[in-house]
Structure formats: C-alpha cells, structure tokens
C-alpha cells in the first residue's frame, strides 16, 4: 500500500530504484544466511582484559595512520623544521657555533616538539565525539578507560617517531650525545612516558570543549608559554628573576633537564624523580577528571 506523498513509499521489486546504488541493489537479505550468523544462545567470549581492550583501541589508532598517513606531518616535517630553524637561528649567537649549541638544544627541541604534538590527542578525541562511533564505544562492556588509553597508546607511537626524526636530523647536523645509545634511549623513554601522562590534560579538553577549533585554541594557550618559557632554548640564568621563578617550576624545564642529563650521560636522579612524580600526579588528576567526564556525557 502506498501513497504518492508518503515519504516511506515502498517500491515494487520490478520497479527500478530511483536513488539506489547499483552495487547494493543486488543485495537481498537471505533469512537463512542471516539467521545462521545470529544466535542469542551462543556462548560469549569472556570480557577482554583492560590491557587487551586498550591495545585494541591503540591498534585502531595505528589503522588510522595507515589510512590517513598525512596525519604524520606533525611528527615528521614539523620537528625537522623546528630543529633546523632553532639550530641556525640561535646557534651562532648563543653558543658560538651550531654544533656546540646542538648538544644543548637537541634534547630541548625534542621535548618541545613532542609536547606540542600532544595537543593532537585532544583534537582526535573531539573529532571522534562528533561521530556516532564514539557512542558505540561507550556502550561496549569493556574497561572504561580503554578507549582513552587507546588514543594515548597510538599517540605514544607518534611521540617515538617524532623523537627519532629529531635525533636523526641532529646526528646529521653533528650532534654527538655523551650518553650513547643507552642514554638517548632512556631520554626518549622518559619523554614519551611523561607525554603519555601530560596528554590526559588534552583528553579532558577534547571531551569538555565544543569544537576542534576551541581544543586547538586552548591547547596553544597552554603549550606555547609552557614550552617557550623554559630552558629549552636558552639557560634560565639569562632571564629576569621573576621569569626564572616560573621557568624553574615549569614541568617542561624539569623534563628537559632530566632528558638532557640522560642524553649527555650525566643522569640527574633528582630531576628524573621529579618528572616521574609529576607524571603520576597528572594521570591521577586529569585521568580521573577525563573518566568522570567520559562516563557522564
């Protein structure tokens, strides 16, 4: 039964479908085939562990990189640009020569680039919320933080990639780390671990703020002062006293000092401990707030 005006009008099978897609027109749901894949009484697999669910969400992030490789620009081209720019801009003026400056600058620029990259976590969370797939994830009977941890696991791969790119550029320009392979690896490990903790700030912003643009805007406001007002580019002793106060308590300053120590072969246990404790605090505070928000939405 049908009327000319009814929007749900049913076409008879012998009529050509007006707006139909050719490929899908050939599909006729076969009751037996569909019934065979449905079985409400079938035993269900046990709920996945927290780790397994998180890793699966991380795998999703990897698949996204595979399908949209352009998103790796910010962890490849951007860090190369940063390293070259600051090495040649400040190298001569600050340290006499670019190769000497590199020993000081490279660990710092690595921290700066990776910390800047963390803000994309918030952007990807926010983009996903706008889509229906986020609702599906939230109705799954899995460990609740798994979806969020998954984003961060995927991002950790990006952080490692950015670090290696910068290291490569540095080595090509003449950077010779005193800490050797072990020192450099430990430095990168600490940086990536801290960035994981730091990113929970952005998962919260990604959930709370309304649009991708506002996430970017707020992230910039936090990240720019935090990274530039630090010991990344210059020694804090050259700054006015009131600024030194801020720079000295900035987690980025402490992180740079710790990473620099490790890569130079002069590990500073005090700084490393400070960074690890700060990381734990960040996860405790922003992880909790993120999950509260995630469950409430």
């Amino acid at each position: 039964m049908s009327t000319a005006t009814d929007p749900t009008r049913t076409d008879r099978p012998d009529e050509p479908a007006g707006a139909g897609n050719e490929a899908e027109d050939t599909y006729v749901p076969a009751a037996e085939v569909l019934a065979a894949v449905l079985d409400p009484a079938a035993p269900r697999p046990p709920r996945p562990s927290a780790l397994s669910a998180s890793v699966t969400f991380g795998w999703r992030a990897m698949l996204k990189i595979k399908h949209v490789p352009e998103q790796l620009f910010d962890v490849t081209v951007f860090p190369i640009m940063m390293t070259l720019m600051f090495t040649y801009l400040f190298g001569g003026a600050l340290a006499g020569s670019t190769s000497e400056y590199l020993t000081y600058l490279l660990p710092g620029i690595m921290v700066m680039s990776v910390i800047m990259t963390t803000m994309y976590t918030g952007v990807s969370v926010n983009t996903d919320i706008q889509k229906g797939v986020f609702d599906r994830f939230r109705t799954l009977p899995v460990w609740r933080p798994a979806a969020m941890v998954g984003y961060l696991l995927g991002d950790m791969v990006r952080y490692v990639l950015a670090s290696l790119v910068i290291l490569g550029v540095g080595l090509a320009l003449g950077y010779r780390p005193g800490g050797g392979v072990v020192g450099v690896a430990a430095g990168i490990l600490l940086l990536v671990a801290f960035s994981f903790a730091f990113s929970w700030i952005w998962t919260l912003f990604g959930l709370v703020l309304r649009s991708e643009k506002s996430v970017m805007g707020v992230s910039m406001l936090v990240i720019f002062p935090l990274t530039f007002l630090s010991n990344v580019l210059v020694e804090p002793e050259t700054m006015p006293g009131w600024l030194q106060v801020f720079v000295d308590v900035s987690p980025v300053t402490r992180l740079v000092a710790a990473v620099r120590g490790l890569m130079d072969g002069a590990a500073d246990v005090g700084e490393i401990t400070w960074v690890l404790v700060a990381g734990l605090l960040l996860v405790a505070v922003f992880g909790t707030l993120t999950m509260h928000r995630y469950n409430r939405r």
């Binding site: 269900r44 397994s52 795998w59």
Partner: peptide
Amino acid sequence: VSLTGQYASVDEDLTGTENLVLLARLLGH
C-alpha cells in the same frame, strides 16, 4: 545491549573488515 545510532556508528576511516574485527576484539574474541 547493542546500539545502532542515528548517525552510522562505524569508523569511516577504517574498512568494513577492520571495523568488525576491532569490535569483535573488544567483545573478547
């Protein structure tokens, strides 16, 4: 329960197979 939302609840960047394997893994398979 399962939900099929008003706007397709699939990840548009992933393939059909990847979408289903991802969810099957999250359901414990």
